[in-house]
Design a protein around this nucleic acid. Structure first.
Length: 497
RNA sequence: GUUCCCUUCGUCUAGAGGCCUAGGACAUCGCCCUUUCACGGCGAAGACACGGGUUCGACUCCCGUAGGGAACGCCA
Protein backbone atom coordinates (compact mmCIF):
# COMPACT_ATOMS: atom_id res chain seq x y z
CA UNK A 1 0.00 0.00 0.00
CA UNK A 2 2.84 2.36 0.62
CA UNK A 3 5.78 1.15 -1.39
CA UNK A 4 5.60 4.05 -3.71
CA UNK A 5 7.47 6.67 -1.84
CA UNK A 6 10.41 8.04 -3.73
CA UNK A 7 12.04 8.89 -0.42
CA UNK A 8 14.22 11.37 -2.15
CA UNK A 9 14.04 15.11 -2.09
CA UNK A 10 15.96 16.16 -5.13
CA UNK A 11 14.47 19.61 -5.48
CA UNK A 12 14.49 22.30 -2.88
CA UNK A 13 11.30 21.68 -0.97
CA UNK A 14 8.71 24.36 -1.58
CA UNK A 15 5.14 23.57 -0.63
CA UNK A 16 2.09 25.74 -0.74
CA UNK A 17 -1.30 25.90 0.85
CA UNK A 18 -3.71 27.47 -1.59
CA UNK A 19 -7.10 28.12 -0.02
CA UNK A 20 -9.91 29.84 -1.79
CA UNK A 21 -11.34 32.57 0.40
CA UNK A 22 -14.96 31.59 0.02
CA UNK A 23 -15.56 30.63 3.64
CA UNK A 24 -13.86 29.98 6.93
CA UNK A 25 -10.93 27.63 7.29
CA UNK A 26 -12.22 24.07 7.39
CA UNK A 27 -10.51 21.32 9.37
CA UNK A 28 -9.86 19.52 6.09
CA UNK A 29 -8.00 22.52 4.78
CA UNK A 30 -6.23 22.87 8.08
CA UNK A 31 -4.95 19.33 7.76
CA UNK A 32 -3.59 19.98 4.29
CA UNK A 33 -1.89 23.13 5.55
CA UNK A 34 -0.51 21.20 8.51
CA UNK A 35 1.03 18.56 6.25
CA UNK A 36 2.49 21.31 4.08
CA UNK A 37 3.97 22.92 7.13
CA UNK A 38 5.35 19.72 8.61
CA UNK A 39 6.84 18.65 5.31
CA UNK A 40 8.53 22.01 4.79
CA UNK A 41 9.88 22.02 8.33
CA UNK A 42 11.10 18.48 8.10
CA UNK A 43 13.06 19.05 4.90
CA UNK A 44 14.15 22.59 5.58
CA UNK A 45 11.97 23.94 2.81
CA UNK A 46 9.62 26.87 2.38
CA UNK A 47 5.93 26.95 3.17
CA UNK A 48 4.07 29.31 0.89
CA UNK A 49 0.58 30.66 1.09
CA UNK A 50 -1.29 31.43 -2.08
CA UNK A 51 -4.82 32.73 -2.28
CA UNK A 52 -6.96 31.21 -5.01
CA UNK A 53 -9.50 33.94 -5.43
CA UNK A 54 -10.44 33.61 -9.08
CA UNK A 55 -14.06 33.00 -8.16
CA UNK A 56 -15.06 36.63 -8.20
CA UNK A 57 -18.54 36.08 -6.86
CA UNK A 58 -17.73 34.03 -3.81
CA UNK A 59 -14.26 35.22 -2.80
CA UNK A 60 -14.02 37.77 -0.03
CA UNK A 61 -10.96 39.36 1.53
CA UNK A 62 -12.63 39.02 4.89
CA UNK A 63 -12.55 35.25 4.51
CA UNK A 64 -8.94 35.37 3.47
CA UNK A 65 -7.86 37.20 6.62
CA UNK A 66 -9.90 34.96 8.83
CA UNK A 67 -8.35 31.89 7.28
CA UNK A 68 -4.88 33.31 7.72
CA UNK A 69 -5.59 34.10 11.34
CA UNK A 70 -6.84 30.59 11.96
CA UNK A 71 -3.70 29.19 10.34
CA UNK A 72 -1.58 31.31 12.64
CA UNK A 73 -3.63 30.27 15.63
CA UNK A 74 -2.85 26.68 14.73
CA UNK A 75 0.81 27.55 14.82
CA UNK A 76 1.37 27.16 11.10
CA UNK A 77 3.48 30.00 9.82
CA UNK A 78 4.53 30.68 6.26
CA UNK A 79 7.47 32.48 4.74
CA UNK A 80 5.86 33.71 1.54
CA UNK A 81 2.43 35.16 0.97
CA UNK A 82 0.18 37.70 2.64
CA UNK A 83 0.94 38.23 6.32
CA UNK A 84 -1.66 38.96 8.95
CA UNK A 85 0.23 41.52 11.04
CA UNK A 86 1.38 43.80 8.26
CA UNK A 87 -1.38 43.03 5.79
CA UNK A 88 1.47 42.92 3.28
CA UNK A 89 3.13 40.18 1.32
CA UNK A 90 6.49 38.59 1.87
CA UNK A 91 8.37 36.59 -0.76
CA UNK A 92 9.94 37.19 -4.16
CA UNK A 93 7.61 35.24 -6.40
CA UNK A 94 4.40 37.17 -5.78
CA UNK A 95 1.86 38.48 -5.95
CA UNK A 96 0.43 35.61 -3.96
CA UNK A 97 -3.20 36.53 -4.46
CA UNK A 98 -4.32 35.30 -7.83
CA UNK A 99 -6.52 38.26 -8.54
CA UNK A 100 -3.33 40.33 -8.76
CA UNK A 101 -1.69 37.92 -11.17
CA UNK A 102 -4.02 38.38 -14.10
CA UNK A 103 -1.30 39.82 -16.37
CA UNK A 104 0.78 36.72 -15.85
CA UNK A 105 -2.05 34.38 -16.74
CA UNK A 106 -2.96 36.44 -19.78
CA UNK A 107 0.53 35.98 -21.14
CA UNK A 108 0.26 32.20 -21.02
CA UNK A 109 -3.29 32.17 -22.37
CA UNK A 110 -2.08 34.24 -25.31
CA UNK A 111 0.81 31.89 -25.84
CA UNK A 112 -1.51 28.90 -26.01
CA UNK A 113 -3.86 30.78 -28.28
CA UNK A 114 -1.01 31.78 -30.60
CA UNK A 115 0.30 28.25 -30.73
CA UNK A 116 -3.11 26.87 -31.52
CA UNK A 117 -3.19 24.93 -28.28
CA UNK A 118 -6.19 26.83 -27.05
CA UNK A 119 -9.07 28.51 -28.81
CA UNK A 120 -11.89 30.96 -28.32
CA UNK A 121 -15.14 29.15 -27.80
CA UNK A 122 -18.48 30.77 -28.57
CA UNK A 123 -20.70 27.98 -27.31
CA UNK A 124 -23.55 29.32 -25.22
CA UNK A 125 -24.71 27.68 -22.05
CA UNK A 126 -27.82 26.49 -23.90
CA UNK A 127 -25.80 24.88 -26.62
CA UNK A 128 -23.59 23.20 -24.07
CA UNK A 129 -26.62 21.87 -22.23
CA UNK A 130 -27.95 20.49 -25.45
CA UNK A 131 -24.69 18.70 -26.20
CA UNK A 132 -24.68 17.33 -22.70
CA UNK A 133 -28.16 15.98 -23.16
CA UNK A 134 -27.35 14.31 -26.45
CA UNK A 135 -24.32 12.67 -24.88
CA UNK A 136 -26.42 11.43 -22.03
CA UNK A 137 -29.06 10.06 -24.34
CA UNK A 138 -26.47 8.14 -26.32
CA UNK A 139 -24.73 7.04 -23.13
CA UNK A 140 -21.57 8.71 -24.28
CA UNK A 141 -19.25 10.82 -22.18
CA UNK A 142 -19.88 14.49 -22.72
CA UNK A 143 -17.20 16.26 -24.75
CA UNK A 144 -17.89 19.82 -25.82
CA UNK A 145 -17.82 20.24 -29.56
CA UNK A 146 -16.99 23.78 -30.54
CA UNK A 147 -17.35 24.95 -34.16
CA UNK A 148 -14.60 27.48 -33.58
CA UNK A 149 -12.13 24.89 -32.38
CA UNK A 150 -9.80 25.28 -35.32
CA UNK A 151 -10.31 28.93 -36.07
CA UNK A 152 -7.27 31.13 -36.07
CA UNK A 153 -6.89 33.57 -33.23
CA UNK A 154 -7.46 36.49 -35.64
CA UNK A 155 -10.60 35.02 -37.07
CA UNK A 156 -11.99 34.40 -33.61
CA UNK A 157 -11.11 37.92 -32.48
CA UNK A 158 -12.79 39.40 -35.51
CA UNK A 159 -15.87 37.31 -34.87
CA UNK A 160 -15.90 38.45 -31.26
CA UNK A 161 -15.72 42.11 -32.21
CA UNK A 162 -18.23 41.89 -35.00
CA UNK A 163 -20.89 40.21 -32.89
CA UNK A 164 -20.03 41.79 -29.54
CA UNK A 165 -19.44 38.38 -27.95
CA UNK A 166 -17.68 37.27 -24.82
CA UNK A 167 -16.10 33.94 -25.62
CA UNK A 168 -14.40 31.59 -23.23
CA UNK A 169 -11.00 30.15 -23.96
CA UNK A 170 -10.73 26.40 -24.11
CA UNK A 171 -7.63 24.28 -23.87
CA UNK A 172 -7.40 22.11 -26.95
CA UNK A 173 -6.98 18.54 -25.88
CA UNK A 174 -5.14 17.13 -28.86
CA UNK A 175 -3.60 14.26 -27.00
CA UNK A 176 -4.57 11.04 -28.68
CA UNK A 177 -4.46 7.79 -26.77
CA UNK A 178 -1.87 9.13 -24.45
CA UNK A 179 -1.61 8.00 -20.88
CA UNK A 180 -0.69 10.65 -18.38
CA UNK A 181 1.21 9.03 -15.59
CA UNK A 182 2.53 10.28 -12.31
CA UNK A 183 3.57 8.93 -9.00
CA UNK A 184 1.30 10.07 -6.23
CA UNK A 185 2.93 10.20 -2.82
CA UNK A 186 -0.23 8.82 -1.24
CA UNK A 187 -1.57 6.50 -3.90
CA UNK A 188 1.37 5.32 -5.91
CA UNK A 189 1.36 5.01 -9.68
CA UNK A 190 -1.48 6.91 -11.28
CA UNK A 191 -2.49 6.83 -14.89
CA UNK A 192 -5.17 8.79 -16.68
CA UNK A 193 -6.10 8.34 -20.34
CA UNK A 194 -6.03 11.58 -22.30
CA UNK A 195 -9.53 11.03 -23.62
CA UNK A 196 -10.90 11.04 -20.10
CA UNK A 197 -11.67 14.70 -20.69
CA UNK A 198 -12.48 16.95 -23.60
CA UNK A 199 -11.49 20.53 -24.31
CA UNK A 200 -11.78 22.39 -21.06
CA UNK A 201 -12.28 26.05 -20.25
CA UNK A 202 -9.20 27.86 -19.05
CA UNK A 203 -10.59 31.39 -19.22
CA UNK A 204 -14.13 32.48 -18.46
CA UNK A 205 -16.08 34.81 -20.67
CA UNK A 206 -15.43 37.47 -18.06
CA UNK A 207 -11.75 37.18 -18.87
CA UNK A 208 -10.95 35.55 -15.54
CA UNK A 209 -8.94 32.35 -15.90
CA UNK A 210 -10.08 29.26 -14.00
CA UNK A 211 -8.63 27.18 -11.22
CA UNK A 212 -7.02 24.35 -13.17
CA UNK A 213 -5.12 26.82 -15.27
CA UNK A 214 -3.97 29.33 -12.68
CA UNK A 215 -3.08 26.63 -10.22
CA UNK A 216 -0.73 25.05 -12.72
CA UNK A 217 0.87 28.31 -13.79
CA UNK A 218 1.40 29.40 -10.22
CA UNK A 219 2.75 26.10 -8.97
CA UNK A 220 5.26 26.19 -11.80
CA UNK A 221 6.18 29.85 -11.43
CA UNK A 222 6.40 29.65 -7.66
CA UNK A 223 8.69 26.64 -8.05
CA UNK A 224 6.49 24.41 -5.95
CA UNK A 225 8.15 21.04 -5.43
CA UNK A 226 5.34 19.10 -3.77
CA UNK A 227 1.61 19.62 -4.04
CA UNK A 228 -0.40 18.37 -1.09
CA UNK A 229 -4.10 18.66 -1.73
CA UNK A 230 -7.36 16.85 -1.14
CA UNK A 231 -8.31 13.74 -3.06
CA UNK A 232 -11.12 15.53 -4.85
CA UNK A 233 -8.44 17.13 -7.01
CA UNK A 234 -7.11 13.81 -8.18
CA UNK A 235 -8.95 13.82 -11.48
CA UNK A 236 -8.13 17.49 -11.98
CA UNK A 237 -4.53 16.49 -12.14
CA UNK A 238 -4.99 15.29 -15.70
CA UNK A 239 -5.93 18.76 -16.89
CA UNK A 240 -3.02 20.22 -15.04
CA UNK A 241 -0.62 17.63 -16.40
CA UNK A 242 -1.70 18.57 -19.92
CA UNK A 243 -0.94 22.19 -19.20
CA UNK A 244 2.43 21.41 -17.64
CA UNK A 245 3.32 19.43 -20.73
CA UNK A 246 2.23 21.91 -23.39
CA UNK A 247 3.83 24.82 -21.60
CA UNK A 248 6.99 22.84 -20.96
CA UNK A 249 6.92 23.31 -17.21
CA UNK A 250 8.53 20.92 -14.75
CA UNK A 251 5.83 19.26 -12.78
CA UNK A 252 5.83 18.92 -9.03
CA UNK A 253 5.28 15.77 -7.02
CA UNK A 254 1.67 15.25 -6.06
CA UNK A 255 0.16 13.92 -2.85
CA UNK A 256 -3.60 13.52 -2.91
CA UNK A 257 -4.78 13.30 0.66
CA UNK A 258 -7.71 11.14 1.56
CA UNK A 259 -10.88 12.94 2.35
CA UNK A 260 -12.42 13.66 5.76
CA UNK A 261 -15.95 12.43 6.30
CA UNK A 262 -18.71 12.98 8.81
CA UNK A 263 -20.10 10.12 10.85
CA UNK A 264 -22.62 9.34 8.09
CA UNK A 265 -19.67 8.83 5.75
CA UNK A 266 -20.59 11.86 3.74
CA UNK A 267 -18.05 14.58 3.18
CA UNK A 268 -17.56 16.50 6.41
CA UNK A 269 -19.79 19.54 6.32
CA UNK A 270 -21.64 21.97 8.52
CA UNK A 271 -24.45 19.60 9.28
CA UNK A 272 -22.00 17.36 11.11
CA UNK A 273 -21.47 20.09 13.70
CA UNK A 274 -18.30 22.07 14.05
CA UNK A 275 -16.09 21.95 11.00
CA UNK A 276 -14.34 25.28 10.88
CA UNK A 277 -11.20 25.92 12.83
CA UNK A 278 -12.70 29.05 14.38
CA UNK A 279 -15.59 27.03 15.76
CA UNK A 280 -13.22 24.68 17.53
CA UNK A 281 -11.38 27.68 18.88
CA UNK A 282 -14.61 29.09 20.27
CA UNK A 283 -15.57 25.79 21.81
CA UNK A 284 -12.36 25.77 23.77
CA UNK A 285 -10.08 23.44 21.88
CA UNK A 286 -6.37 24.02 22.07
CA UNK A 287 -4.59 24.56 18.76
CA UNK A 288 -1.93 22.02 19.65
CA UNK A 289 -4.61 19.39 20.34
CA UNK A 290 -6.51 20.15 17.15
CA UNK A 291 -3.40 19.91 14.99
CA UNK A 292 -2.32 16.73 16.72
CA UNK A 293 -5.72 15.23 16.13
CA UNK A 294 -6.09 16.14 12.47
CA UNK A 295 -2.54 15.07 11.77
CA UNK A 296 -3.58 11.57 12.75
CA UNK A 297 -6.42 11.47 10.25
CA UNK A 298 -4.61 10.06 7.28
CA UNK A 299 -1.14 9.92 8.74
CA UNK A 300 0.47 7.99 11.56
CA UNK A 301 3.71 8.27 13.43
CA UNK A 302 6.21 5.42 13.07
CA UNK A 303 6.17 4.75 16.80
CA UNK A 304 2.40 4.60 17.00
CA UNK A 305 2.42 7.39 19.58
CA UNK A 306 -0.69 9.49 19.42
CA UNK A 307 0.08 12.49 21.57
CA UNK A 308 2.69 14.29 19.55
CA UNK A 309 4.13 17.76 19.97
CA UNK A 310 4.65 19.83 16.88
CA UNK A 311 8.35 19.07 17.05
CA UNK A 312 7.70 15.35 17.27
CA UNK A 313 5.38 15.55 14.30
CA UNK A 314 8.02 17.36 12.29
CA UNK A 315 10.77 14.94 13.27
CA UNK A 316 8.66 11.93 12.38
CA UNK A 317 6.94 13.31 9.32
CA UNK A 318 7.30 11.54 6.03
CA UNK A 319 5.05 11.07 3.09
CA UNK A 320 5.23 7.27 3.20
CA UNK A 321 2.94 7.09 6.19
CA UNK A 322 -0.15 8.52 4.57
CA UNK A 323 -3.28 6.40 4.56
CA UNK A 324 -5.10 6.44 1.25
CA UNK A 325 -8.53 5.59 2.66
CA UNK A 326 -10.91 8.31 3.73
CA UNK A 327 -11.48 8.81 7.42
CA UNK A 328 -14.39 9.73 9.64
CA UNK A 329 -13.96 12.70 11.94
CA UNK A 330 -14.58 11.60 15.52
CA UNK A 331 -15.38 14.55 17.82
CA UNK A 332 -15.22 12.29 20.88
CA UNK A 333 -11.61 11.42 20.34
CA UNK A 334 -10.78 15.05 19.71
CA UNK A 335 -12.29 15.87 23.08
CA UNK A 336 -10.22 13.21 24.75
CA UNK A 337 -7.07 14.49 23.13
CA UNK A 338 -7.90 18.05 24.08
CA UNK A 339 -8.33 16.95 27.69
CA UNK A 340 -4.89 15.34 27.60
CA UNK A 341 -3.34 18.59 26.44
CA UNK A 342 -5.32 20.64 28.93
CA UNK A 343 -3.93 18.66 31.83
CA UNK A 344 -0.37 19.04 30.66
CA UNK A 345 -0.57 22.81 30.50
CA UNK A 346 1.21 24.98 33.07
CA UNK A 347 -1.35 26.56 35.38
CA UNK A 348 -0.38 30.06 34.46
CA UNK A 349 -0.76 29.26 30.78
CA UNK A 350 -4.04 27.46 31.29
CA UNK A 351 -5.44 30.24 33.42
CA UNK A 352 -4.55 32.80 30.81
CA UNK A 353 -6.26 30.83 28.06
CA UNK A 354 -9.33 30.51 30.25
CA UNK A 355 -9.86 34.24 30.72
CA UNK A 356 -11.60 34.87 27.41
CA UNK A 357 -14.17 32.21 28.28
CA UNK A 358 -14.72 33.60 31.78
CA UNK A 359 -15.04 37.13 30.43
CA UNK A 360 -17.67 36.10 27.97
CA UNK A 361 -19.80 34.80 30.84
CA UNK A 362 -18.91 37.69 33.18
CA UNK A 363 -17.32 35.37 35.68
CA UNK A 364 -15.16 37.27 38.14
CA UNK A 365 -12.71 34.98 39.89
CA UNK A 366 -9.93 35.63 42.38
CA UNK A 367 -6.60 36.06 40.66
CA UNK A 368 -4.02 35.35 43.34
CA UNK A 369 -1.67 32.58 42.47
CA UNK A 370 -2.33 30.29 45.41
CA UNK A 371 -6.05 30.36 44.80
CA UNK A 372 -5.64 29.83 41.07
CA UNK A 373 -3.27 26.92 41.55
CA UNK A 374 -5.62 25.29 44.00
CA UNK A 375 -8.67 25.84 41.83
CA UNK A 376 -6.99 24.57 38.69
CA UNK A 377 -5.63 21.54 40.47
CA UNK A 378 -9.18 20.79 41.57
CA UNK A 379 -10.96 21.36 38.31
CA UNK A 380 -8.62 20.65 35.44
CA UNK A 381 -9.14 16.92 35.43
CA UNK A 382 -12.85 17.52 34.85
CA UNK A 383 -12.26 19.70 31.81
CA UNK A 384 -12.28 18.47 28.27
CA UNK A 385 -12.39 21.91 26.68
CA UNK A 386 -11.53 25.36 27.95
CA UNK A 387 -15.19 26.18 27.76
CA UNK A 388 -15.97 23.44 30.28
CA UNK A 389 -14.26 25.59 32.87
CA UNK A 390 -17.16 28.02 32.72
CA UNK A 391 -19.64 25.60 34.27
CA UNK A 392 -17.01 24.26 36.64
CA UNK A 393 -16.10 27.68 38.00
CA UNK A 394 -19.51 29.25 37.90
CA UNK A 395 -20.69 27.59 41.16
CA UNK A 396 -17.77 29.03 43.10
CA UNK A 397 -18.26 32.46 41.65
CA UNK A 398 -20.02 34.66 44.27
CA UNK A 399 -22.55 36.25 41.93
CA UNK A 400 -23.59 33.01 40.34
CA UNK A 401 -24.73 30.88 43.24
CA UNK A 402 -28.15 29.33 42.88
CA UNK A 403 -29.98 26.26 44.04
CA UNK A 404 -30.25 23.72 41.23
CA UNK A 405 -33.39 21.64 40.72
CA UNK A 406 -31.32 18.53 41.32
CA UNK A 407 -30.90 19.66 44.92
CA UNK A 408 -34.58 19.49 45.87
CA UNK A 409 -34.49 15.81 46.81
CA UNK A 410 -31.58 16.34 49.15
CA UNK A 411 -33.28 19.35 50.70
CA UNK A 412 -36.33 17.26 51.44
CA UNK A 413 -34.41 14.79 53.56
CA UNK A 414 -35.39 14.75 57.20
CA UNK A 415 -31.90 15.37 58.57
CA UNK A 416 -30.85 18.01 56.08
CA UNK A 417 -32.01 21.08 57.99
CA UNK A 418 -30.36 19.92 61.19
CA UNK A 419 -27.07 19.29 59.44
CA UNK A 420 -27.08 22.65 57.73
CA UNK A 421 -28.04 24.62 60.83
CA UNK A 422 -25.19 22.99 62.68
CA UNK A 423 -22.86 23.62 59.78
CA UNK A 424 -23.87 27.26 59.72
CA UNK A 425 -23.21 27.85 63.34
CA UNK A 426 -19.88 26.07 63.24
CA UNK A 427 -18.72 28.08 60.27
CA UNK A 428 -19.81 31.36 61.78
CA UNK A 429 -17.62 30.63 64.79
CA UNK A 430 -14.67 29.70 62.64
CA UNK A 431 -11.77 32.06 63.33
CA UNK A 432 -10.22 32.38 59.82
CA UNK A 433 -11.34 33.79 56.49
CA UNK A 434 -10.86 30.51 54.69
CA UNK A 435 -11.41 26.95 55.88
CA UNK A 436 -8.67 24.46 55.18
CA UNK A 437 -9.37 20.97 53.94
CA UNK A 438 -8.17 19.58 57.26
CA UNK A 439 -10.46 21.82 59.27
CA UNK A 440 -13.31 20.81 57.05
CA UNK A 441 -12.63 17.14 57.64
CA UNK A 442 -12.50 17.70 61.39
CA UNK A 443 -15.70 19.65 61.19
CA UNK A 444 -17.56 16.94 59.33
CA UNK A 445 -16.47 14.43 61.96
CA UNK A 446 -17.94 16.68 64.57
CA UNK A 447 -21.23 17.06 62.70
CA UNK A 448 -21.33 13.34 62.17
CA UNK A 449 -21.06 12.77 65.89
CA UNK A 450 -23.28 15.53 67.18
CA UNK A 451 -26.03 15.20 64.58
CA UNK A 452 -25.75 11.44 64.27
CA UNK A 453 -25.72 11.65 60.50
CA UNK A 454 -23.13 10.13 58.19
CA UNK A 455 -22.49 9.29 54.56
CA UNK A 456 -24.77 10.65 51.90
CA UNK A 457 -27.20 12.46 54.25
CA UNK A 458 -24.21 14.33 55.61
CA UNK A 459 -22.23 15.17 52.51
CA UNK A 460 -24.94 15.78 49.98
CA UNK A 461 -26.59 18.58 51.98
CA UNK A 462 -23.20 20.17 52.53
CA UNK A 463 -22.47 20.09 48.85
CA UNK A 464 -25.83 21.64 48.12
CA UNK A 465 -25.09 24.36 50.64
CA UNK A 466 -21.77 25.00 48.93
CA UNK A 467 -22.46 24.81 45.22
CA UNK A 468 -26.23 24.45 44.99
CA UNK A 469 -26.11 20.93 43.55
CA UNK A 470 -25.64 17.49 45.12
CA UNK A 471 -22.92 16.41 42.73
CA UNK A 472 -19.56 17.85 41.84
CA UNK A 473 -15.95 17.89 42.89
CA UNK A 474 -14.67 16.63 46.20
CA UNK A 475 -15.83 18.83 49.06
CA UNK A 476 -12.47 18.97 50.79
CA UNK A 477 -11.06 20.49 47.61
CA UNK A 478 -13.93 22.85 47.16
CA UNK A 479 -13.91 24.31 50.66
CA UNK A 480 -10.61 26.20 50.50
CA UNK A 481 -11.80 27.95 47.34
CA UNK A 482 -14.69 29.73 49.04
CA UNK A 483 -14.36 32.36 51.73
CA UNK A 484 -15.98 31.76 55.09
CA UNK A 485 -18.30 34.66 54.46
CA UNK A 486 -19.39 33.27 51.13
CA UNK A 487 -19.95 29.85 52.66
CA UNK A 488 -22.17 31.42 55.29
CA UNK A 489 -24.06 33.43 52.74
CA UNK A 490 -24.75 30.30 50.76
CA UNK A 491 -25.95 28.18 53.60
CA UNK A 492 -28.28 31.00 54.56
CA UNK A 493 -29.66 31.16 51.07
CA UNK A 494 -30.23 27.42 51.06
CA UNK A 495 -31.90 27.49 54.45
CA UNK A 496 -34.10 30.27 53.17
CA UNK A 497 -32.96 32.67 55.85
C1' G B 1 -23.01 6.48 -18.60
C1' U B 2 -17.36 7.13 -18.94
C1' U B 3 -12.68 7.50 -16.30
C1' C B 4 -10.32 7.29 -11.75
C1' C B 5 -9.79 6.44 -6.38
C1' C B 6 -10.99 3.82 -1.81
C1' U B 7 -12.49 -0.73 1.58
C1' U B 8 -8.66 -3.91 8.84
C1' C B 9 -12.87 -3.63 15.51
C1' G B 10 -18.63 1.46 16.08
C1' U B 11 -14.42 5.37 15.01
C1' C B 12 -8.91 6.75 14.12
C1' U B 13 -5.23 3.38 12.85
C1' A B 14 -0.64 -0.55 12.94
C1' G B 15 0.33 -4.09 9.23
C1' A B 16 5.83 -4.08 3.29
C1' G B 17 3.95 -12.90 2.15
C1' G B 18 5.34 -16.66 7.61
C1' C B 19 6.71 -12.09 13.38
C1' C B 20 -1.10 -12.26 13.33
C1' U B 21 -4.17 -16.46 18.19
C1' A B 22 -4.39 -9.34 13.62
C1' G B 23 -1.38 -4.74 17.79
C1' G B 24 -2.54 0.34 19.81
C1' A B 25 -5.95 4.64 20.73
C1' C B 26 -11.11 6.82 21.33
C1' A B 27 -15.93 5.19 22.51
C1' U B 28 -18.63 0.96 25.11
C1' C B 29 -18.98 -2.57 29.25
C1' G B 30 -16.99 -4.61 34.01
C1' C B 31 -13.85 -4.28 38.35
C1' C B 32 -10.67 -1.25 41.64
C1' C B 33 -9.99 3.74 43.80
C1' U B 34 -13.90 7.05 45.85
C1' U B 35 -19.10 9.63 51.30
C1' U B 36 -21.21 12.05 45.13
C1' C B 37 -19.51 13.26 39.94
C1' A B 38 -15.18 12.95 37.49
C1' C B 39 -9.73 11.74 37.01
C1' G B 40 -6.81 7.55 37.40
C1' G B 41 -5.56 2.06 37.47
C1' C B 42 -6.78 -2.88 35.75
C1' G B 43 -9.61 -5.95 32.54
C1' A B 44 -13.42 -7.55 28.75
C1' A B 45 -15.83 -7.35 24.26
C1' G B 46 -14.98 -5.93 19.27
C1' A B 47 -12.36 -5.94 12.52
C1' C B 48 -9.07 -8.08 7.66
C1' A B 49 -16.30 -6.25 2.56
C1' C B 50 -17.21 -10.81 -0.60
C1' G B 51 -15.57 -14.49 -4.33
C1' G B 52 -11.79 -16.52 -7.14
C1' G B 53 -6.70 -17.14 -8.19
C1' U B 54 -0.87 -16.96 -7.34
C1' U B 55 2.00 -19.35 -3.31
C1' C B 56 4.24 -24.55 0.88
C1' G B 57 1.89 -20.20 3.19
C1' A B 58 -2.17 -14.24 1.84
C1' C B 59 -4.70 -8.82 5.97
C1' U B 60 -0.49 -8.30 2.67
C1' C B 61 0.27 -9.86 -4.51
C1' C B 62 -3.30 -10.49 -9.03
C1' C B 63 -8.41 -10.69 -11.12
C1' G B 64 -13.49 -10.09 -10.44
C1' U B 65 -18.06 -8.67 -7.47
C1' A B 66 -20.37 -5.50 -4.05
C1' G B 67 -20.39 -0.98 -1.43
C1' G B 68 -18.53 4.07 -0.80
C1' G B 69 -16.29 8.45 -3.11
C1' A B 70 -14.31 11.89 -6.99
C1' A B 71 -14.06 14.08 -11.89
C1' C B 72 -16.67 14.65 -16.48
C1' G B 73 -18.60 23.05 -14.36
C1' C B 74 -17.50 29.74 -17.30
C1' C B 75 -16.53 26.16 -8.45
C1' A B 76 -12.04 25.35 -6.19
Amino acid sequence: MKLHNTNSTPKKVRVRFAPSPTGYLHVGGARTALYDYLFAQKFGGEFILRIEDTDEERSKDEYMWSQLEDLKWLGLTWSEGPQVETQKETGDLGPYQQKYRLEIYKKYIDQLLDQGQAYYCFLTEGELDQQREVAKKNKLPFRPLSPSRDWSKDKALAHTKENQLQPTVRFKNNFKNKKFEFKDLVRGDMSFPSDMIGDFVIQRSSGMPVYNFVCTIDDALMKISHVFRAEEHLSNTLKQLMIYETLGFDRPEFAHLSIMLGEDRQKLSKRHGATSVSQFKEEGYLPEALTNFIALMGWSSPSGEEILSQKEMIDNFSSDRFNSASSVFDPEKLKWMNAQYLRKLEHQDLWQRLQVFFDKEHLKLPQDKTWVDMALETFKSSMETLKDAVELFRPICPDHFKLEDSASEVMAWETTAKVLEYWKSEVSNYPHDYLSAEDFKALTKKIQKDCEVKGKPLFMPLRVALIGAPQGVELAKLIPLLSRQEILRRVSVVLGV
